[in-house]
């Protein structure tokens, strides 16, 4: 648990961050809350000669809400997110999800940006962002660009972000109606055995739209278009739930680990998804 030597940088503006990234390339990494990167460095699984701390960069800590459009700065902590009344008003699923991430101590430090950017399949925010069809906003040497969360994740720890780009914020429209984030974990602070993010809208007693994403059941978060589609026009009855679960099971690809074998994870994924849909439906 002793990291190798590294240079610590603490720039005060984004241009300097980009300049450092350009200069050092693969040898540099930005750090938000540090709750993924620092443990990896301590375990010497990541050797980062140049660590760039983002905490003095202005504007990354903001939560902005314009009408239905929500933008979360990369440095917003899970704790701030949980305690932001206006955000909870327009997008309560954020709070419901963040409360299931890690533990209070970690949530004081852990950020939205770090959780989304890293590409760790265990993180909860990526699946949620896919469910919400969020845009991931990046800054780089060639200016700003946005990538859809549903296109962002390529493989474990591999994303559409280039090495010289920084994730500055995520934006999404507030989910209009029913929502749920359901997660099974072994203990507080654990990654999901299986987790499901569900949003749906109701029209005339049936589902008008639905979006479903799963966490830690593949090397990337899984937005299951088929699972959402299976609910459209239904009353989320047993048959609809079964169809949604079947579609979802076709999209996930869990691996065995200490949480259990594949058969168990697939079974739990189905149970968790049914519960999430049922709760979202009840709230719609």
């Amino acid at each position: 648990m002793i990291p190798a030597a590294f240079e610590y940088h603490r720039p005060t503006n984004m241009d300097d961050v980009i300049a450092l990234l350009t200069k050092h390339g693969d040898d540099a990494r930005v750090m938000a809350g540090g709750h993924s990167l620092i443990p990896m460095m301590k375990l010497r699984m990541a050797e980062i000669p140049h660590l760039i701390d983002l905490q003095d960069i202005g504007g990354l800590q903001d939560i902005t809400i314009h009408g239905q459009r929500v933008t979360l700065g990369a440095m917003v902590t899970q704790h701030e997110l949980i305690n932001h009344a206006a955000l909870t008003e327009v997008a309560p699923i954020l709070r419901e999800t963040a409360l299931q991430i890690a533990d209070p101590q970690v949530r004081y430090m852990g950020t939205v940006g770090g959780n989304v950017a890293n590409g760790d399949p265990g993180n909860d925010m990526p699946g949620l962002m896919q469910c919400l069809d969020a845009q991931i906003n990046l800054a780089g040497p060639n200016g700003a660009r946005s990538v859809a969360a549903r296109d962002y994740y390529e493989a474990a720890y591999m994303t559409a972000r280039e090495d010289d780009e920084v994730l500055v914020s995520v934006s999404f429209d507030s989910p209009k109606s029913g929502y749920a984030y359901e997660k099974q974990k072994r203990k507080i602070g654990d990654y999901a055995t299986a987790a499901a993010a569900v949003t749906l809208t109701k029209d005339g007693g049936t589902v008008a739209s639905a979006s479903i994403a799963m966490t830690n059941l593949s090397d990337v978060p899984v937005w299951s278009e088929g699972a959402g589609a299976a609910l459209i026009g239904t009353r989320c009855d047993a048959d609809a739930l079964k169809a949604a679960v079947e579609a979802m099971l076709g999209d996930i690809d869990p691996t065995e680990d200490n949480r259990g074998p594949v058969a168990f994870k697939r079974h739990v994924a189905g149970v968790i998804l049914k519960r999430a849909i049922t709760r979202a439906w009840d709230r719609a």
Binding site: Q184, R186, R259, G260, P261, F264, H267
Partner: peptide, 16 residues
């Protein structure tokens, strides 16, 4: 008796 082993017991007994 972690989650998956309890699940496995239920599964073995045909409760799923």
């Amino acid at each position: 008796h972690d989650h998956w082993r309890i699940w496995q017991t239920a599964n073995r007994l045909g409760l799923h």
